[in-house]
Amino acid sequence: MNTHAVELHKVGKRYKYFSLNDISLSLPTGSITGFIGVNGAGKSTTIRILLGLVHQDHGSVQVLGQAMPEQQVLAKREIGYVSEDMRLYPKASLAWHMQFIQSIYPNWDQAYAEQLLKRFDLRAEQKIKGLSHGQRVKASLLLALARRPKLLILDEPTTGLDPVARQEVLTALIEVLADEDRTILFSSHNTLDVEQISDQVVFIDQGSIIEARSKEDLLDAWRRLRVRVAPDQTVAQLPYVLQHQGHGQLQTIITNRYSPELQQTYQQAGLEIQAVELLTLEEIFVASIQARREGKNL
């Protein structure tokens, strides 16, 4: 078994107004990776390259051991894909779609499909055009999950869903995670969703990967420190300060290299540390993007 389900090496794609800049990324087999970026950051382009729907200009892409786009037919036999942008045939029923997918994928699990039908409160005989947006997403997810794919690629699946539908989708995904061999790539600009289910996090901005590591490491490394500063002191010169706010004696510092040693360094520099706070994934994401756009090294 491959240790990595997905491996991208210096992959680039140039469009008129956007380019994907030599991105390299590896997704360990069995991992759940949250792929976070603002709209237009390059998430969907990267995902389409992974599926062979868009061919990279340069760089190598391996998905489940298959070179893409050349071996896309073999790779896609083991991939389930759901996208906010993807639609099923409006005039056909969900049952027709289930039969269609079943005829293509030998791994189709009918019992699981029926279980998902109940959980998602869907009716197989209903035509797709009669479903709400949330129901359509759940129908697509059912079709992807019941084929028991080794790699599940979800491109903004929760976008536009109401809170209940969003939670149902996330709960189904969390249950799928019980299968340790299945790798999931979950793209979203909603960091709360990613924080709930991911164990790896990748940030993408303006076509470049700016962060890729485990969620625990990421949350552990970032801190907000509330400090009291001497009148003649400038915190911007201190090591690993990505952001600082406030101009008086009380200021806040955000660092992405927090450790007890770093805290000691700040104290030795004369800062009085009043509080050390964890950041949410959303705060880390926003701070990362801002720091990068200000030209700082992450």
């Binding site: 729907l53 639609r87 409006p90």
Partner: peptide, 17 residues
């Protein structure tokens, strides 16, 4: 226009097929 192409192209099929 109805965005069903993404659904079909996500199946094990090449552009030529």
């Amino acid at each position: 226009t109805q965005k069903t192409l993404a659904f079909i192209m996500s199946l094990p099929v090449s552009g030529r097929q």
